[in-house]
Design a binder for these strands. Structure first.
Lengths: 342, 342
DNA sequence: AAACATAATGGAACCGGTTACACTTTTATG
DNA sequence: CATAAAAGTGTAACCGGTTCCATTATGTTT
């Protein structure tokens, strides 16, 4: 366990002042003779010197750290988002502090406090929907907040990057209607979430456009965590007049829903046509391969990081930016014409 | 964009000295009268004061940050590991800096430099296998390094948490042998990785125990990234005397292998019995449900965090700790007796 | 060669906390 | 009630960088 050399150790060993070493460390901050620079660099490597980030950050805030606040990284959607965000950030020399909320207000609030104390320059988050006051405070503090995937309507000043949820649900529903389905169900995120609301709105639009009757019994909300998706599935199957088609618009609940269908012995697509919001490789491996709504996670990540850092570089654009990227409907084999007439 | 209050602002507003405020901030660091404490706390909330982590860390290193250096968070195995590590760390008030290497030496080296500069107290990593000198330096610096899932034999001093790879591969192979298979293939990680080597060793043990002939053509290594798994699959299928059973011991390549099998029209388990190292919900959804080796990710995470922090608290245990947790073989329906005799 | 611009370097304050130590006020003890 | 012990508070140095500004070395112009 060796003691760490400081900038003064380096300065002493190189026979220069700390100011010079600092200039070597931060090119562009002032002139240094080439010979001196070389000597200082040599000393730094032989001493094994590494400047301490904490000390650097003391003077001016850290433009080198982003907070990434996700619900849950075990969800593949968020996992891939995290992966892309980290890569994108690293390519710009930015580090990522990863935190999870488990969809819990209280935990979210604690995580946000930590991020405030760290004075991160920006936060990319999937908000639970509460803690409005903290989000506002963050903005007052000049932290760049970007909501990804979801948003909070009561906070119009925040940048948002999301897929076009309404349109995605609309086109998925429309595809089912075009196949002749008249009883189309949807399992979506909680109505308290913007994604849930938007997707249900798109679903309704499609039904209306197709001239189909709307039945609120066919609209099920399932919490992002737990087994809610399975229960919603059972409820739909037990309906007096059950659906012939189903849109699973809650990414977190896709496997729960499919497992329940499988256990119930419902055959896809013969008895039930299915479209899911989920883009993992395995959706192609199940029988039959699933028709999916593919969310362009890489785009979400890239835009989020760009926004979080663009603002950081001083551009207080004033207005908030909302970026909507289009999801892609990938047709495979889980959609067919309905067998049974209702 | 408001200016942030500092500890001196708080002290002034409360009519006390900064030392007192600091003591309020760090309970146990010294006596403070109850009345004073209350007043200071009030001022802190009305002013919206949050102490800066960077300043705190200046004095003594930060026991509040862990580095988590993974190959790739889009791999569900690592994603779930990350999720668990983050939760475990948060429950102890520790933050996690997430970095990825993409299995690239050079990137790993850069990430490690960053972690050194941040003076993180501990690092949990899946090492690429290179950068020996940097890992050593990290240890000299007193950073607690814990390798998870894989290790580097040339660095015996590092703590390691991994599943019992040899035993896992042995039991999976033994199960296939017990079903009467004589030509059992394995697709594993690169031979340069300890997981790859250990799993192949277990595979060989099982063959030997079953009195089966070993054929190196049936042993395929596939890199953790890219489409190597698919190519290995094709090569196995095209063998003159192809296998009747397959162990996919490279988690990262499981979907690639299955996709290739599916495209090649190989039916499981009639033509090929399959066991995979992978424990995602979807392995139960495919047809047939897959027999899997379930890796106890939560245990890996908990032990890793414990080790990384146990050492941090001063216990220079001297010796390195190696923790091996047992994986569980979950039998489902992708293993059957071989149809065709070879 | 004088006059002046520019390059290179050093000294010291500063960022926002923590903490050793000195000092003052209470409380406890004989 | 004197006095020692404990509790409460303040001052100032310190952590390891960055940066303003002054100073000295070098180079250019006429």
């Amino acid at each position: 366990m060796q003691k760490q050399p400081t900038i003064r150790d380096v300065a002493a060993a190189a026979g220069v002042s700390v100011a010079v070493v600092s200039r070597v460390l931060n090119p562009g901050s002032g002139p240094v003779a080439a010979a001196t620079r070389g000597r200082v660099n040599d000393v730094m490597t032989t001493l094994g010197y590494h400047p301490r980030t904490a000390a650097r950050e003391l003077k001016h805030g850290p433009p080198t750290t982003l907070g990434l606040l996700l619900a849950d990284v075990s969800n593949p959607f968020f996992a891939r988002l995290a992966d892309q965000v980290v890569q994108e950030a690293h390519s710009r020399g930015i580090q990522v502090l990863l935190m999870t909320t488990q969809e819990d207000d209280q935990l979210e609030s604690e995580r946000l406090s930590t991020l405030i104390e760290r004075r991160v320059s920006g936060i990319i988050a999937t908000p639970t929907g509460n803690n409005l006051d903290i989000w506002k405070k963050l903005q007052d503090l000049g932290t760049d907040v970007v909501f990804v995937d979801r948003s909070i309507p009561a906070l119009p000043a925040v940048d948002v990057v999301t897929i076009n949820n309404t349109e995605s649900a609309r086109s998925a529903t429309a595809l089912l209607a075009a196949h002749g389905h008249r009883r189309i169900a949807i399992i979506s995120g909680p109505a308290s979430s913007t994604t849930g609301r938007d997707r249900i709105a798109g679903y309704r639009e499609a039904l209306e456009a197709a001239g189909l009757e709307q039945d609120d019994l066919l609209i099920r909300s399932a919490a992002f965590r737990g087994a809610a998706g399975g229960d919603a599935t059972t409820a739909l199957l037990n309906l007096e007049d059950p659906p012939t088609a189903l849109v699973v618009a809650n990414t977190a609940q896709v496997t729960a829903v499919l497992r329940r269908l499988s256990h119930a012995g419902v055959s896809i697509p013969d008895e039930l046509s299915v479209i899911v919001f989920e883009d993992s490789p395995w959706t192609e491996l199940v029988t039959p391969p699933l028709t999916i709504v593919r969310q362009p996670i890489d785009l979400l990540a890239r835009h989020s990081v760009q926004l979080a850092l663009a603002n950081a570089s001083g551009k207080t654009s004033g207005k908030s930016t909302v970026i909507r990227v289009d999801a892609e409907l990938v047709e495979r084999s889980s959609v067919a014409r309905p067998k049974r007439r209702t």
